[in-house]
């Protein structure tokens, strides 16, 4: 693997790691924050809810996979 490829792999691992679904849920939370805030509604709760769903779902999948 050359260093340019390694560089991109680094950033993918840094941002998405081994759980792309969890990262997508968090990103949807950011998008949701933007649209809710633009609509004039209090939006600070959207990202914590997305993180809650992301980590909980990921942990559930991990534990289920142990069996």
């Amino acid at each position: 693997m050359d260093y340019i490829e390694r560089f991109f792999v680094f950033w993918y691992d840094f941002l998405f790691g081994d759980d792309w679904l969890g990262a997508v849920i968090v990103l949807l939370g950011f998008g949701g924050t933007y649209f809710v805030a633009q609509a004039g509604i209090i939006a600070f709760w959207v990202v914590p809810v997305a993180v809650f769903i992301s980590i909980s779902l990921s942990l559930w999948l991990l534990v289920r996979g142990e069996g």
């Binding site: 759980d19 969890g22 990103l27 990202v47």
Partner: peptide, 21 residues
């Protein structure tokens, strides 16, 4: 700040998930 927040959170969620597990 939005960009930093997104990057830090994507990074932090991975660490928190792995360490909880």
């Amino acid at each position: 700040r939005a960009l930093i927040g997104i990057l830090l959170l994507l990074f932090g969620v991975q660490w928190l998930r792995k360490s909880i597990y």
